[in-house]
Design a protein around this nucleic acid. Structure first.
Lengths: 208, 208
DNA sequence: GATCACTAGACAAATATCGTTTAAGTGTCT
DNA sequence: AGACACTTAAACGATATTTGTCTAGTGATC
């Protein structure tokens, strides 16, 4: 599909210059959407010339793809950090998903242009988004497996395998997100409610 | 310079349709600035066809002028209400100026596009902005005169006439505004500080 | 059925943007 | 000084978008 050779370099901080450009470009994209954001806008935000942009990225599309990739990579780092933190598995999972939501969904939250940016992302960088979702899924699954081994949670009553559980968590998160876009109460509230229910379902009972 | 015949009709609620359009258009202008806002954007926001926009406004410029006029008119109404409220003159003046700042300055606050919108406003609707400033000035002056008659304040120590005092209040507000645009602490804090100082200067002393 | 308010769509002209190229401007290293 | 890498402003043709106008409708109300 897409050549991944040069992209990996431009994701985080490998190339310092591209990183700075993307850091400046992302807020502009978030604010104006893809279509209304011009290369001149990005150049101004990054405090370099428009010509220099084309030294680092060969098109607006590639720049956007790199930006999307960077945003996803940085968020996944933070998600991983959350999963390695303190507390019970499900608390950490909840916190991790909170990070994922806040950093990749909330910024575009609700406004009309959010749709455009989301659509552009799917049109130009669907593979990146899906890959990030896969990564999130595997990280969650891994943590769940560890928790099961430590008998911190028990999936037997649910008759679910770890990957399945991780799957419905992410799916629910996604569903809640889209619900909220059509106007609802709180994005985080619904997520927490779901996690609370889940926690009750998988917590081992010491009793008979 | 500018024919004021049809403008007065389109300011507040005289023509209901134009009012609805402007209410929808103003946030779009505030968000994207004049240049990046297209007639299609406004039509979408107002939930009417692009063609219909031209039935109410003969150009994007005229629509913007009408929008600017409406914003100023509505704000001046609120300012007048504040000036007719409770409390001492200077408290009411402070509150009124707070309204003026919040509704006409803060929305465009600080961001890079604010400059563009402000510049567009001055290029296309300078007369409206200046007229609003005149109106504000005369309203303040009127209230100060009444307060002086009631011996609520005393301008003699300052050796200032009411119009002069109103003038420096508005001028200071303007200066504070521009200072804050270059990044500072609080717009309202500085305004309040100024008003506090002013209050001490004009409050009559009962003593010897 | 006539009238009214509105709309979708097409249209030329004006404007904006994209991506490329050129020539010149930086500063650094030898 | 000269070679060098890096950046830039300016200009370019090629598209793409926006503006403002116009026509041929649609649907509701009288």
């Amino acid at each position: 599909m897409v050549d991944t050779e040069c992209q990996a370099d431009q994701v985080v901080g490998n190339d310092q210059k591209t990183g700075q450009i993307l850091d400046a470009a992302l807020p502009v994209f978030v604010r104006f959407g893809f279509r209304k954001t011009s290369m001149a806008d990005i150049a101004r935000a990054a405090k370099i010339s428009r010509a220099s942009l084309y030294l680092s990225f060969k098109s607006k599309e590639e720049l956007f793809r790199a930006g999307s990739m960077r945003a996803h990579a940085l968020t996944l780092d933070n998600v991983a950090a959350m999963l390695d933190g303190q507390g019970s598995v499900l608390d950490r999972v909840e916190a991790a998903i909170g990070v994922f939501q806040r950093e990749l969904i909330a910024p575009f939250g609700g406004s009309a242009d959010a749709e455009e940016l989301f659509a552009a992302n799917m049109a130009l960088a669907a593979d990146i988004t899906l890959a990030a979702r896969e990564k999130l899924l595997s990280m969650l699954t891994q943590k769940l497996i560890v928790a099961i081994e430590r008998k911190e949670i028990d999936l037997a009553p649910l008759q679910a395998r770890p990957a399945q559980l991780a799957n419905i968590i992410v799916a629910a998160m996604d569903g809640i997100k889209h619900t909220q876009w059509s106007g609802g109460s709180g994005l985080e509230d619904n997520t927490r409610l779901f996690m609370r229910a889940l926690k009750m379902a998988v917590t081992p009972r010491d009793g008979p």
